[in-house]
Nucleic acid binder design. Structure first.
Length: 476
RNA sequence: CGGGGAAUGGCGCAGUUUGGUAGCGCGCACGGUUUGGGACCGUGAGGUCCCGGGUUCAAGUCCCGGUUCCCCGACCA
């Protein structure tokens, strides 16, 4: 029988148990790779579809670029190649022959995009270029964990080019906000938007912004990033346009990405000891119908009602499943709870008699919270309930996040705070400062949150005056 | 790449100390009884004991080498 290790006992094991019991993944034959099984992939697809709609709504279009990149492309931007070299997969043999120039499997597509944009963009009339890619990339990671860090991972990467820095920066923030809204409105996941420290900046960016999410063990997860690439890649690849004034200028570019790590984050933010808890908007199955009967006679009347209810919910565009497996109701209740289905509809002989059903919601612990409602108008009732569940999951996650951020103003208090939550602390933006903290307390500078009250503080490491505070915590 | 665990049927494990016909629970198939919170009985299928070499009459078990996975650290979406 499937067993899920309690979170308090071993959080990592709990995470793996939940993924396994929910049938979301399997390990791939090559170390560090995973197979996303249908339930996991459908969840990812739903998240992807919701995000893709947001991209389209903000004027972006999708395209697809090659998996293979000539090695010399990577070398064109100095800090980019330095950042990615250690984790590249490189093809040296093709068709049985040693290649003249090795081919790199993309770790990200800034370079091949830069090359294409340099040919596509000629005039200010061509700008902005707003393209997004849904693909997978490969980074040779030493230590992997399903969805959170895999050698090959699925994601989207947006790449845009603009005429001015003002415009490109606006794009960086727009997309950071799109990710933030996706988290809250689609996934019930609150996150903290902020600016990454110099030390944590993307290889080749002049500024990196991120979304940081708090997991159930209070560790941080970088849930998405949006980069201001300045003119670094434009200069490296010659992305230039002729402006109104007939002078040639370099473009300002951005890139932004969100991977299936976000799915792992969703599991760790909402899951409980019973298993997954899925936000209704992205759940592969939003409502499951469990029929209950003893005799064949009961079975036929119960199934007739169950099928009618199924049709009613389906007609209302609810992702509904009728569980007609030959298992006991108790087994099914537990099974669907592990899989995080938000709403369960139970129909038995008593319900048939009273034209009712029993409704159970996943956002509250298992055996409580069942209510009996009429079959008539059930679809509307379920929709309302799904909205409530979304709000409830968001509320729980938000309360957890807020109650575990500790404002501190001394080094000793910082050390204390990161043992059990996040610290909001005055910190000079200096790689040496980040390094010292990491060394001393195995915690990292997550970001400088944008939503913080302005003020003036004293850095707890350097003693310098600073005008913003950093989030520091242990992280995945 | 460092430190620590582990690898035996789909999953979880025992067996290794002391070498001697490969076992248990769950799951799976079939039959029957069951079904409002993880049902029960019976029958049955399913195994290169991680891989390679060695010792031995005989290796899951002992020796040597390797691989993979998990956990904890350094690097990262």
């Amino acid at each position: 029988m499937g067993k899920i290790t309690p979170r308090s006992e071993d959080y990592s094991q709990w995470y793996l148990d939940v993924l396994r019991e929910a049938d979301m993944f399997d390990y791939g034959p090559v170390g560090g790779t995973i197979i996303a099984k249908p339930y996991g992939w459908t969840l990812y697809e739903n998240m992807k579809d919701a995000l893709d709609k947001r991209f389209k709504d903000t004027g972006h279009v999708n395209a697809q670029f090659p998996l293979f990149i000539p090695e010399h492309f990577l070398r064109k931007e100095q800090s980019h190649v330095e950042g990615f070299s250690p984790e590249l997969a490189v093809v040296t043999i093709g068709g049985g022959k040693e290649l003249d120039e090795p081919i790199v499997v993309r770790p990200t597509s800034e370079t091949i995009i830069g090359d294409a944009y340099s040919r596509w963009i000629k005039s200010y009339r061509d700008l902005p270029v707003l393209i997004n890619l849904w693909n997978s990339v490969v980074r040779w990671e030493k230590r992997t964990k399903p969805f959170l860090r895999t050698m090959e991972f699925y994601w989207q990467e947006g790449h845009t080019a603009h005429a001015t820095h003002e415009e490109s920066w606006e794009e960086v923030m727009r997309m950071l906000n799109v990710y933030h809204a996706h988290g809250i409105e689609d996934c019930a996941m609150p996150t903290v938007r902020g600016r990454k420290s110099k030390n944590e900046r993307f290889a080749g960016a002049i500024s990196t912004t991120s979304l940081e999410a708090m997991m159930g063990d209070k560790k941080a997860l970088q849930a998405a990033t949006s980069h201001d690439l300045g003119q670094n890649f434009a200069k490296a690849f010659g992305i230039k346009y002729l402006d109104r004034d007939n002078t040639e200028k370099h473009c300002w570019t951005t890139s932004w990405g969100l991977s299936w790590r976000f799915l792992g984050g969703l599991v760790m933010m909402h899951g409980d000891d019973q298993g997954l808890r899925l936000p209704p908007k992205v759940a592969p199955i939003q409502a499951v119908i469990v029929p209950i009967f003893k005799t064949d006679v009961e079975k036929s009347v119960v199934m007739a009602v169950a099928e009618r209810v199924f049709a009613q919910l389906k007609a209302a565009d609810i992702k509904v499943k009728l569980d007609d497996r030959e298992e006991t109701p108790g087994f099914k209740f537990n099974d669907w709870e592990m899989r995080g289905v938000p709403v369960r509809v139970e129909i038995g002989p008593k319900d048939v008699e009273k034209n009712s059903v029993a409704l159970a919601r996943r956002d509250v612990p298992g055996k409580v919270g069942k209510i009996f409602v009429p079959q008539e108008g059930l679809a509307e009732r379920v929709k309302t309930l799904m909205d409530e569940i979304h709000a409830s999951l968001l509320g729980q996650a938000d309360a957890f996040l807020k109650s575990n951020i500790h404002e501190v103003d001394s080094y000793a208090a910082l050390k204390d705070a990161v043992q059990d939550g996040w610290a909001l602390v005055p910190l000079t933006d200096d790689p040496a400062v980040d390094a010292k903290i990491k060394e001393d307390m195995q915690a990292t500078n997550r970001n400088y949150p944008y939503d913080q009250t302005p003020g003036e503080w004293t850095c707890v490491v350097t003693g310098q005056k600073v005008t913003e505070r950093a989030l520091v915590s242990k992280a995945y």
